[in-house]
Amino acid sequence: MSDPKIEASKPAKPSKRFRILLGVSLALNLLVVGAVVGAIAKGGSSNRGPSGMRDAALPYVGAFERDDKRAMQQQMRARLPKRKDIRAALDKGYREFVEVVRAEPFDAAKAAKIMEEQFERAGQFQKVGREVSIERISEMSVEKRAAYADRLEYRLDNPRKHGKRKER
């Protein structure tokens, strides 16, 4: 039999449930830190556009008919770098950023440059999206443009309902 004094001195192994909760807590903390860093980074330069750029684009995109959205997505894919190339560039930037953060002394200018390059890539995606959207609207007949304007106006007037409304 084991000695109760020895057993009492060993720290108890955390339960599986506790370890899962700890992992979830860590993940949530990292999400919050990421959101804060993202918010700070977005607010640093006036040429990046207002915060919530995605929110600004949603009504415009959402008002397009499903077929238009699919065609626009194909046009964007043709104009933008391949997804794997974008992901590789992002990953490279993140790794470089980690190295800069760990370096002593910390080089704030280099860190800012890495972030700026990543946000410029995102800005390119947004720019192409705006171009494709305007091209698509320019190609519409007067009737289709009026229907698009009606859908957009509906989304603006009913912001909570736009996700539940069926596409025309």
Rank of each mutant, 00 (worst) to 15 (best):
K69E: 05
E65L: 02
I114T: 02
V33L: 15
E104T: 10
A112H: 06
M115W: 09
A149M: 09
K113W: 07
R77N: 13
D150L: 10
R87M: 08
L31W: 04
L156W: 12
R121W: 00
A12D: 11
A147W: 01
A111H: 05
S51M: 14
S138C: 03
G163D: 00
R155M: 12
A89W: 02
M115A: 13
F97P: 00
A27L: 12
L26Y: 03
E167S: 15
F106W: 07
P50H: 13
H162W: 10
D157K: 10
G34Y: 04
R83M: 15
D107F: 07
G93H: 05
Q118Y: 01
F119N: 09
L26I: 15
Y94T: 05
A12F: 03
P105G: 06
L21H: 05
L22N: 05
Y154Q: 10
P11F: 05
G34S: 09
E7Y: 01
D91C: 05
K10S: 03
G52Q: 07
E104G: 13
A71Q: 09
A88V: 10
F119D: 06
D67C: 08
K166C: 01
R66I: 07
S15W: 00
K10V: 06
L21A: 08
R95W: 12
L30Q: 08
Q73R: 14
D107I: 05
P50D: 11
D3R: 12
L80H: 02
A88Q: 07
V61D: 06
E139S: 10
K82Q: 13
I134C: 04
G123S: 06
L28N: 01
E143I: 00
I6A: 11
V132F: 04
R136L: 01
E117Q: 15
R48W: 12
A63G: 04
K113L: 07
F64C: 06
A27K: 02
L26V: 14
L80N: 03
V61I: 14
I86L: 14
K161H: 02
L80V: 04
V101C: 15
K16A: 15
E167P: 03
L90E: 10
A71P: 01
P11E: 14
L28R: 02
A35K: 11
E116I: 00
D157H: 02
G49C: 07
V61R: 15
I86C: 08
P4V: 00
